[in-house]
Simulated assay, not measured.
Amino acid sequence: MAELLGRVDGASKGLGGSMHLYKKDHNFYGGIGIVGTHVPLGAGIGLAHKYRKDGHVSFTLYGDGAANQGQAYNMAALWDLPVVFTIENNQFGMGTSARRASKNTEFYTRGDYIPGVWVDGMDALAVKTATAFAKQHALQHGPIILEMDTYRYHGHSISDPGSTYRTRNEIQGIRRARDPIEHVRNLLQEHSFADSNELKRLENDIKKHVTEEVEEAKRSPPPPLCYLWKFVYKKGWGAKLRNVELGRGFIQLPS
Rank of each mutant, 00 (worst) to 15 (best):
V184I: 15
R185A: 07
R185Q: 10
R185Y: 15
R185S: 07
N186L: 13
N186I: 09
N186Q: 14
L187T: 08
L187R: 14
L187M: 13
L188I: 08
L188V: 07
Q189H: 08
Q189R: 14
E190N: 15
H191E: 15
H191S: 15
H191R: 15
S192R: 13
S192H: 14
A194F: 05
A194Y: 05
A194E: 06
D195G: 03
S196A: 15
N197E: 15
N197G: 09
N197T: 14
E198H: 08
E198K: 13
E198M: 13
L199H: 09
K200G: 02
K200T: 14
R201K: 14
R201M: 11
R201T: 14
R201H: 10
L202F: 09
L202R: 08
E203R: 08
E203S: 14
E203T: 10
E203V: 03
E203H: 12
E203I: 02
E203F: 06
N204A: 13
N204T: 12
D205E: 15
I206L: 15
I206T: 11
I206Q: 04
I206G: 02
K207T: 03
K207L: 08
K207G: 00
K208H: 12
K208D: 12
H209M: 13
H209A: 12
H209Y: 12
V210I: 15
V210F: 11
V210R: 08
V210D: 05
T211F: 09
T211R: 14
T211W: 09
T211Y: 11
E212M: 07
E212H: 07
E212W: 03
E212Y: 02
E213L: 15
E213I: 04
V214C: 05
V214S: 00
V214E: 07
E215A: 13
E215L: 10
E215Q: 12
E216T: 11
E216V: 04
E216G: 07
E216I: 06
A217I: 05
R219V: 00
S220A: 11
S220V: 02
S220N: 05
P222D: 09
P222M: 06
P223M: 05
P223L: 02
P223R: 02
P223T: 02
P223Y: 02
P224I: 03
L225M: 09
L225R: 10
L225A: 12
C226I: 12
C226K: 11
Y227Q: 00
Y227M: 02
L228Y: 03
L228F: 08
W229C: 04
W229K: 02
W229T: 10
W229N: 01
K230V: 00
K230E: 08
K230W: 01
K230C: 00
F231L: 03
F231A: 00
V232T: 12
V232W: 03
Y233C: 01
Y233M: 00
K234E: 08
K235G: 00
G236V: 01
G236C: 01
G236T: 01
G236K: 01
